[in-house]
Design a protein around this nucleic acid. Sequence first.
DNA 1: GTCTATAGTAGGATAGAC
DNA 2: GTCTATCCTACTATAGAC
Lengths: 207, 207
Amino acid sequence: MTPTRQKLIDGALAAIREHGIAGVSARTIATAAGVNQALVFYHFGTVDDLLAAACESATAASVASYRSALAGVTSLRELLAVGRELHEREKAGGNVAILAQMLAGAQTDPRLAPPTAAALALWTAEIETVLRRVLTGSPFGTLAEPAGLAKAVSAAFVGLELYEGVDEPGATTAFEALEQLAVLAEVVDDLGPVARRALRARLRRIP
Amino acid sequence: MTPTRQKLIDGALAAIREHGIAGVSARTIATAAGVNQALVFYHFGTVDDLLAAACESATAASVASYRSALAGVTSLRELLAVGRELHEREKAGGNVAILAQMLAGAQTDPRLAPPTAAALALWTAEIETVLRRVLTGSPFGTLAEPAGLAKAVSAAFVGLELYEGVDEPGATTAFEALEQLAVLAEVVDDLGPVARRALRARLRRIP
DNA sequence: GTCTATAGTAGGATAGAC
DNA sequence: GTCTATCCTACTATAGAC
């Protein structure tokens, strides 16, 4: 990785954060990177390709920085704590914000869709591993596929970050409600043998 | 509402759907609307103001079209069915897609944030009403605030629609997992008196 | 209210000097 | 690899004719 390539990638991330997908351009990126505008095309060919590289880089780094924390998670409560920490750090950093902007752009730009899907897959794979471990033997795990659940969790998280951008206090109440729901989930997961048997019996009656 | 204003609003919605927030302009909107480009500024002053009006209009219409269906909802299962129908219709229509694009744009454009928040509030208010009714007496309702839950549901839905744009089969598995989770929620909600008492006892021990 | 024309700015992309 | 200069396109917004 040459220094200029790195500058451009960092500049692209800064430009997305500052101007959103609607405002990024070779010029705004080059300004943020402190390099000449023509270098975007020399090093990456098109703006889209630079955005793809930047998104991949930022997501890979972000996911890696949570890998050890996620590896230690053995309960829903702990997973939630990691999610809360991620959310807190995102307020300053904004790697999920990058993903959200890419996702918005990818809806109508076929060149952005594959790299965005790939970046999201980094998150879902990590979350799926944790969910598979945490939900083993739980009523939740027996019913819902960890793979689908991981995708739903990632998508919901992105949606909440977007929502926070237009209604910060509202987003706080939304997160609090989800935390309460997770508490309930842990309680259900932790029911005594009698109640648990009743639950299992009910579940068996569902196709 | 003059015919031209209406054409412009419809054109704005079509343009957002086709080009995303990154690609809308007075020109793309005017082309979609079949009117002269200068009329955007005559009728709405700025592109942002037209987008705001279009978003409000589309969301209000969409919410209104689900009001009667939502009024008949008395269980989580039924609420889920409405959600599924909305999701199916969105594949063709795309009013949530509009909201998602506005949300992405609003992150960095302060002029888009208030109208976007207002449009989202139309959905959350409706969902909150239903949740409040459905969750009365349920362990879920006693723990989590319907207001926060409604916001979380709306945000998650937007996130899932965005996710679907880059990974359609993945989004399907995500929706399926959430449906399974809702089934489990209904089962918990419907537990026999013994198990229910055990659940309540546990919940009381949590602050 | 709607049109044409246009000013002024910003954007993608390339050629060619260094 | 990096820079300047430049072409062409597209954008917002307005002025003025109809």
